[in-house]
Simulated scan of single mutants.
Amino acid sequence: MSHGTTTLHRGRKAAAATLIAAAAIALTAYQDTEADAAGAPSTATGGTATGKYAFAPDRTAGDRCTTDHLKAGWGTDGGGRPDMHSDNQQTVGVWLKNTGSGDCTLAGFPGVELVGNSGPGDTFDLRRGAQQPVTVHLKPGEHTSFTFKVLPSLTGSEKRIEPGRVNITPPNEKKHLTLRWPFGGAVLDQRGATHPGSWVSPIGVG
């Protein structure tokens, strides 16, 4: 929490009683400012969401959810299992659960890196989609989810990646969570595409 610097403008010398009273008022005002800052509701662009996608007015939502206090898994409340034998764009769902002892918030896009089976350098970092992020509020034990899109590759002549695992980096974090890729198949490698068919959505959106 940051604090502004309070500058006391003093006038001409006054009686001792007046100075003591002024100092008491200034101290009270500073303490009130501290309490207001600590209890002020947080504001997020795009709205506020809670676990299980329920939306609510903005409010104080605790600290940011960190990688150390999150658990990840495949799927969403609406499904999210891709058919890697289809030639259509597929949706993959990932849930994130708050395993900490206190409330926390997630806001923005997660990092999604597909890691292939061909050795070092066989990776594909998905770009961000165009959706507007929201803030997701999670109580201990609650979960939320996000999705990402992939274009399956069905022919060996295409530039593609066969995922073995996926690294998930929560927003504003440097450490990632790793999930084994259980769906098989291959993803069309579009790292150089202007408008790739594989991209990631914000947490709690869609």
Rank of each mutant, 00 (worst) to 15 (best):
E113V: 13
S118E: 12
A56T: 13
D58I: 05
D122G: 07
L96G: 07
V94H: 00
S101G: 03
D36M: 08
V112G: 08
T91P: 06
W74I: 08
V115W: 04
S118R: 13
K52A: 09
W74Q: 07
P110K: 02
A72N: 07
Q90V: 09
T66N: 00
P82G: 14
A26N: 03
G62N: 04
G62F: 03
D83E: 10
A21M: 02
R64H: 07
T105C: 07
D87H: 11
T43N: 06
T33Y: 10
A29I: 11
A107G: 13
L96S: 04
G100F: 03
G47I: 02
A26K: 06
T45R: 11
A56E: 11
T66I: 00
A61G: 10
V115D: 05
W95S: 15
T66K: 05
A56V: 15
S101A: 13
G39S: 15
A21T: 09
D83T: 10
P41I: 01
V94G: 03
A54Q: 10
P41H: 06
A35T: 11
P41W: 06
G46A: 06
V94Y: 01
A26I: 08
T66S: 01
I25M: 10
A37T: 05
S101E: 01
Q90I: 09
P57A: 04
A56N: 02
A22M: 01
D68N: 08
F55P: 05
I25K: 11
A24R: 10
A29R: 06
T91C: 12
A26Y: 02
I20R: 15
T67N: 02
K97M: 14
T60R: 09
G102L: 07
G78Y: 12
A35P: 00
A35V: 10
N98R: 03
N98D: 07
M84R: 07
T67C: 00
D103E: 15
G46I: 00
A61Y: 04
D83N: 15
P82F: 14
E34Q: 12
G73V: 09
A44F: 09
Y53I: 13
N98E: 03
T43F: 12
I20A: 15
A61T: 11
K97L: 15
D68K: 06
D122Q: 06
R64A: 06
P57M: 03
F109G: 10
A35G: 07
D122H: 06
V92H: 05
A49G: 05
V94F: 04
Y30D: 13
V94W: 01
K71P: 00
G102I: 02
L96K: 04
A44V: 09
L106C: 02
E113F: 05
G46F: 00
N88V: 12
G73N: 10
G80V: 11
A56I: 14
G102N: 14
L27A: 15
T18L: 11
D122M: 05
L19Q: 09
M84Y: 12
G111P: 14
D68I: 01
T66H: 00
G102S: 14
S42V: 05
I25D: 13
K97C: 05
A26M: 01
G80Q: 13
A29E: 11
G121T: 02
Q89M: 13
P57C: 01
A37Y: 13
S101H: 00
A38W: 11
A54W: 04
L96V: 09
T28D: 10
L114K: 03
G119H: 05
N88A: 15
V112P: 08
D87A: 14
T45Y: 04
N98V: 04
V112L: 08
E34H: 03
T43K: 10
G108M: 02
P82Q: 15
